[in-house]
Design a protein around this nucleic acid. Structure first.
Lengths: 141, 141
DNA sequence: AATGCAGTTGAAAATCACTTGCAATTAGTT
DNA sequence: AACTAATTGCAAGTGATTTTCAACTGCATT
């Protein structure tokens, strides 16, 4: 009994339960998202999904990303300069280290930093809605 | 002998020394930037500078921002959704708390968070080029 | 002060990342 | 199978920013 990944990413069921119709275009996009181990942008998702179903269009990718985001299934990130990039939302919160040379993204978490942020917001009289911490770095050699 | 602000923001001299010509359009833009206590975007800078010199155009605002950024005089921030916003680069590094209701920006620093970030990058084998930490919050009432 | 010319300008067009309008199509109920 | 509202692709529209290009202008040099 294999268990390739810890999570199933059953976006189809999730969307269906939210009253969203599962079209063949969305099936292709959903599969790409579910299988993605990286943080692809819309164009990249469009390219990958087109290979599964040539009828997928870029507007549909954007519309599907929006729907998934509204249903809490994915998270959107806008790193410096570039277009929005997406990732599953089911993992616990984490921040990102972006390799400025390759654009690849490494995830990390720091409970200490999280706690310090809450302290800071507290002192300034604010409730945190969300935050983003991005470290842009170069691999040491 | 008055000393209104701690820093002079003498962008004109800085640019001149970098071999950049000081046109009347740039003088107007530079004055707006030097006097700005907030984080205006290009359109806002254009509006303010137009009052000083009607011949300033939006492309020139963008070109001047780019030149200032390349010379390390200003910093560009792209907060969620909105356009780039600019601020002087001479102050010490700080992070931002953005009021999601008003769009206003509060600056803060946390040496502890900075230190933790260095530790994290270190562990991952990276040298930090720069980073950004933004907290999006609502004022507590 | 006049000259020369590379740097700079504004206007218009181009680009980039999305978003929207709309007529045709289709998923999913009845 | 019939129905109908959700969804689609295409084309056009946005908003932010950049580029093209011919005209103009700092400013170093006569």
């Amino acid at each position: 009994m294999s268990k390739a990944t810890a999570l199933h990413h059953d976006y189809e069921t999730l969307l269906r339960e939210a009253g969203v119709r599962i079209t063949k275009q969305r099936q292709a996009i959903l599969k790409i998202i579910a299988d993605a181990a990286d943080h692809p942008d819309a164009m990249e998702i469009y390219n990958r999904a087109s290979a599964l179903d040539a009828s997928v269009s870029l507007p549909t990718v954007y519309r599907t990303m929006k729907t998934l985001e509204e249903n809490g299934a994915i998270r959107r990130h806008t790193f410096e300069g570039g277009p929005s990039r997406f990732e599953h939302a089911d993992s616990e919160h984490h921040d990102h280290l972006i390799d400025v040379d390759t654009g690849s993204v490494i995830e990390f978490t720091s409970p200490k930093i999280e706690a310090l942020q809450r302290e800071i917001a507290e002192e300034l009289g604010y409730d945190i809605i969300h935050h983003r911490l991005e470290i842009y770095g170069k691999r040491r050699r």
